[in-house]
C-alpha cells in the first residue's frame, strides 16, 4: 500500500530558527504512529506541517491524492463573544444534518451534547467533540496534537481507548503527539522520538530500549514516571554522527527514573 503522507528531508523553521530538520516520515494506512519528545522539540510543528498549516523551510511533504485528514488540535480557545453550539461547531466549514451530528457525537462517546454551548463543556467533553468533528468526513488519517492535555489520568486513558475503538471501526491511520508515554507504549504501532530531529523510531519495544529514548525519558516503568523527571539533553550512541548544536547541547547527565 502507498503511504498516506510522506515527508522527505523535511526542515521547519520559525523566524530563521530551525526547529526541526531532516525528517523522513511515512505513514501507512491503518497504522498508529505516535510522536514523543520534550517540550519545544518540534512535535507540534511536525504535525502542523503534515496537515499543511506550516510550509517547509526545505524538503517536501507529499500527501496521497485527495487524502482526507481529521485533525484534533492541541487546544482551541473559543472567544467569549462567539456563541457556538456543539452541532453548529460540527457543521464547520460544511453544514451537516442534525441527525448526522448526533450520530458522530455518539461515536465519539458524547451523545446528547448537540445543543450545548462549546464554552460550557468540560475538558473531556470538549476533546471528544473535537474528535467527533475530526471523524465527520470518515478520514483516512486522524491527526491528534496532544489530545489529552488537561485531562486527568482516567480521562486520558478513556480517550485513548476511544481512539483505538475508532481505528478498529473505521480502519483509519492515526498520527498523534502524546505526553502519556505509558499509553503510547501500549497503543502505538510505531513511535517516533523527536528532539529537533528524529532521534529514534520503531516499534514501542525497540524505541523503549533505544539509548536515545532512554536518554530522553529514562528507563524505569516504561517511561511513565520518567515523564516527570527526564532532562532535555541526551547523549548519542557511538554510531551516531550528529551533534546538538541547536540549543540543547549540555553534558549528558541523567538520573534514570526508577
Amino acid at each position: 500500500m502507498n503511504a498516506l503522507i510522506e515527508t522527505t528531508g523535511l526542515c521547519l523553521a520559525y523566524g530563521g530558527q530551525t526547529v526541526l530538520r531532516d525528517v523522513n516520515l511515512s505513514i501507512a494506512p491503518g497504522e498508529i504512529v505516535t510522536i514523543v519528545g520534550p517540550n519545544g522539540s518540534g512535535k507540534s510543528s511536525l504535525i502542523r506541517a503534515c496537515i499543511g498549516a506550516v510550509q517547509p523551510a526545505s524538503g517536501r511533504v507529499i500527501r496521497s491524492g485527495r487524502l482526507k485528514i481529521g485533525y484534533v488540535p492541541q487546544s482551541l480557545a473559543i472567544d467569549a463573544t462567539l456563541p457556538l453550539t456543539v452541532t453548529r461547531f460540527l457543521g464547520l466549514p460544511r453544514r451537516i444534518p442534525a441527525d448526522r451530528a448526533a450520530r458522530v457525537l455518539e461515536e465519539a462517546g458524547v451523545p446528547d451534547l448537540g445543543a450545548r454551548q462549546m464554552r460550557d463543556l468540560s475538558g473531556g467533553q470538549f476533546q471528544r467533540v473535537l474528535l467527533a468533528r475530526a471523524l465527520l468526513d470518515a478520514p483516512e488519517l486522524l491527526v491528534l496534537d496532544e489530545p489529552t492535555q488537561g485531562l486527568d489520568q482516567p480521562g486520558a486513558a478513556a480517550f485513548y481507548q476511544q481512539i483505538e475503538a475508532v481505528r478498529q471501526q473505521t480502519g483509519c491511520a492515526v498520527l498523534m503527539v502524546s505526553h502519556d508515554l505509558h499509553v503510547v507504549m501500549a497503543a502505538s504501532d510505531r513511535v517516533l522520538c523527536v528532539n529537533g530531529h528524529i532521534c529514534c523510531e520503531g516499534t514501542p519495544e525497540i524505541v523503549a530500549s533505544a539509548p536515545e529514548y532512554r536518554a530522553l525519558f529514562g528507563t524505569g516503568t516504561q517511561g511513565a514516571l520518567a515523564l516527570y523527571r527526564h532532562e532535555h539533553s541526551h547523549s548519542h550512541g557511538p554510531d551516531c554522527d550528529h551533534d546538538h548544536d541547536d540549543g540543547h547541547a549540555h553534558p549528558a547527565r541523567h538520573e534514570a527514573a526508577e
Binding site: 499543511g52 498549516a53 488540535p73 482551541l76 462567539l82 457556538l84 464547520l92 491527526v143
Partner: peptide, 16 residues
C-alpha cells in the same frame, strides 16, 4: 462558513 472556521482555528480550517 469558511470565515467562521478560520476564525475559530486557522489550523482546523487548514485541515478542512
Amino acid at each position: 462558513s469558511p470565515l467562521l472556521s478560520a476564525t475559530l482555528s486557522p489550523d482546523l480550517a487548514q485541515a478542512a
